[in-house]
Simulated scan of single mutants.
Amino acid sequence: MTPPVVVTIAGSDSGGAAGIAADLTTFAALGVHGACVVTAVTAQDTTGVRAVHPVPLDVVAAQLDAVLEDLDPAAVKTGMLATPEVVRLVAERCADRLLVVDPVVVATSGAVLASEEVVRAYREHLLPVATVSTPNAEEHDALGRPDLPTVLVTRGGDIPTTNDHGTGCTHSAALASYLALGDDLPTAAARADAFVARQLLVSQHWRLGRGRGPVAHVHPSTTPTHRGAPA
C-alpha cells in the first residue's frame, strides 16, 4: 500500500534531536512518507542553540509549492517557522489541509525562540486555520492561551530522564502521522503520547552530548550496541 505523505515545515537541528531530524525519523518509524520544507538552519547541540539562519521566504515558498503540488500531503506539520512572513505563508497555503501546528516560540527552559512579531503572526494567521496545536506550557502562555484551534499542551512524559531534547517535535510529528493514517484526533493524541513515552524509555540511559540528550528515534528491537556501551 502506498503510504500517506506528511510534510514537516521546520528548521534543521545539527545535533539530530529536534526539528526536521526528529520529524522525518518519526514519520519513517510510523509508516508515513516524510517530505520537508526547511525554514531555518540552526547550529545547536544538547546544550542549546548557538545560531539560527532563516531561509529566505522565496526559497521556503518554492519548497512548499513543490511538495504541495506534486505529493499532495495528507497532513502538514509545522515546527520553527522563524519569521512572521513564513508563518503567514503557511497559513495561506495550508489552510485547507490537516494542519498540526507545533508553535516553536519558547523552549521548556524558558529561552525565547521567536520574536513578538512571529508570536503575533501565529495568533492572527496560523492558529485560526490549524486543525490542532501542540504548544508546551510556556508557549501556551506566550500565545495568550488561545482557544482556537484544539490545543494539546505538551508536558513531556513522566519518564525520569535527561534525554528529552526533541520531545515536542517527536510528539507533534507522531500526532500528524497518526492523523494522516486515519485516526481521529483523540485516538491519534493518545497514540502519540504512548509513542513518545516508549521512545523516552529507549533513550533513558543514553550518554549523548554534555547537556539534555535526544529522545530516541530508534526502536528497542533495532537499537545497536557497541563495545563499551551498555546493552
Rank of each mutant, 00 (worst) to 15 (best):
R145L: 09
R227F: 08
G168T: 00
Y178V: 04
R120I: 01
Q199Y: 04
M1W: 13
H171T: 06
V132E: 08
I20K: 09
T167K: 00
L64Q: 06
R198A: 14
R210H: 11
D183G: 05
R227A: 09
T161V: 07
A35L: 14
D164Y: 09
A174D: 01
D183K: 09
L68N: 08
L143W: 06
V153Y: 05
T222D: 11
V86A: 04
A51N: 05
V106Y: 02
A137G: 03
R155F: 08
A130W: 10
D147L: 13
D102R: 00
L127H: 08
E116N: 11
P214G: 12
P149Y: 15
T131I: 10
A174G: 05
L181V: 02
D158A: 13
V151H: 07
H165V: 05
H125L: 02
A229L: 14
T26Q: 13
H171S: 05
T83L: 05
T187A: 14
L127I: 10
C169V: 02
R212H: 13
V202F: 02
D141V: 15
P214H: 11
L126G: 02
T154R: 03
V87M: 04
T222M: 07
P160Q: 11
Y122F: 15
C94R: 12
A121E: 06
D58L: 08
H33T: 10
G15E: 12
T170N: 00
D193F: 11
E85S: 06
L71H: 15
G213C: 06
V100W: 01
P128W: 10
A137S: 09
A197T: 15
L175A: 04
G168P: 00
V52N: 00
E138H: 14
R145T: 14
N136F: 06
E85T: 04
D23N: 14
D183Q: 10
P160N: 11
S109T: 15
P84D: 13
P54H: 06
G156V: 10
H53G: 00
V202G: 01
P128T: 08
R198F: 01
G144F: 11
M1L: 12
A75N: 06
V101R: 00
P214L: 10
N163Y: 02
T170V: 05
V202C: 03
E92N: 10
W206C: 01
M1Y: 13
R123T: 14
L99I: 13
A61K: 13
L24K: 05
G211M: 06
A190M: 04
T83C: 04
V86P: 02
L152M: 12
R227V: 05
T170P: 00
G157E: 06
A121T: 04
H171W: 09
A35Q: 12
L89A: 09
F195K: 10
L64H: 07
A43M: 07
V38E: 10
V86H: 01
F27G: 03
V6T: 07
P230K: 15
L99P: 09
V52E: 02
T39Y: 02
V67K: 01
V119L: 10
D72K: 14
R123K: 15
A66S: 13
L30P: 01
L113M: 06
T150G: 03
G110W: 14
A82T: 07
A10K: 03
S203I: 03
L208N: 01
A197W: 10
P4A: 00
A29I: 05
